[in-house]
Write a protein that binds this DNA or RNA. Structure first.
Lengths: 144, 144
DNA sequence: AGCTGTCGTAACAATAATAGTTACATCGCT
DNA sequence: AGCGATGTAACTATTATTGTTACGACAGCT
């Protein structure tokens, strides 16, 4: 599957900002986060832009600008992040509509869609069980 | 997410073969299945090739060649199909390794990996609950 | 007012995966 | 031998993600 790293990078960014603020800083810049995540600042700004729309972070502009958490890490779950940065569904149906004249072609899409809906709901439940505070805690618990 | 339709098309193919055999035919051709799924026969042959490696279908060559089920649809689950046609993980880690000198960069990958492992295991459990017989039954239950 | 550092965003290139297509060797039955 | 299908390589097309450059907008400072 063409898995992407958006959820990983977004979680990285949130954990980074959270830790940075815990150390007494007001805001974090996209450049700092990008350096830690080994990517481009624009990638971070785009992701954090999505997270801001979801109400997870805030940004300041001008000199001394940067990003800060809009809520406590404890109140954010991976589901919040997932919904903010992953638009599409997990599994796709057919690219072109299957033959409606065939019994299987006719019934397969509603049948699979119902299955996929159940599976995505389960995925959501799992994602909702992990808070970003948990993530940061796990990160800090990794031995050097 | 760049969702793909492999699982959908593979399930479609299996349901089609199952129904076709139920109607008394010995083997199904990739061309027939491709017509029902609105795709190219080669795409079907490639997917069925993966399913054959997993022991779900068999193929005959020569005249009167085609594909048949290697086992009863009841004994196949969507997990079997998923494992046969989806190589990669659901979520990717960073493309480039994060900064190991940063606390977050150092700990984020093992932390996220552990979370992803749990989530994938949950996904597997859900997929394993649905047999291909269920799928065909659902397909046939869709009203015209 | 002007300077500075950062966001916000557009535009484009690079990379990668999936899917579609053509072509053809190979196989096995009649 | 002829036929109809698989098996597979090679290539193209499409699409999504990621990376990069560029630059306007903004806000605080001197």
């Amino acid at each position: 599957m063409s898995a992407n790293s958006r959820l990983t990078i977004a979680a990285h960014a949130l954990a980074w900002i959270g830790l940075y603020q815990r150390q007494g800083h007001e805001v974090a810049t996209s450049e700092q986060i990008a350096a830690s995540a080994s990517t481009n600042p624009v990638v971070i700004r785009r992701l954090l832009g999505d997270l801001r729309q979801a109400g997870l972070v805030e940004s300041r502009r001008g000199v001394g600008a940067g990003w800060s958490l809009a809520r406590d890490l404890e109140s954010m779950t991976l589901l919040d992040v997932y919904e903010a940065v992953e638009p599409g569904p997990l599994f796709a149906l057919h690219r072109a509509a299957p033959d409606p004249g065939c019994v299987v072609g006719h019934g397969i899409q509603p049948a699979m869609q119902r299955i996929y809906d159940v599976i995505e709901e389960t995925l959501r439940r799992e994602l909702a069980r992990v808070t970003l505070k948990d993530v940061l805690q796990d990160v800090l618990a990794v031995p050097r």
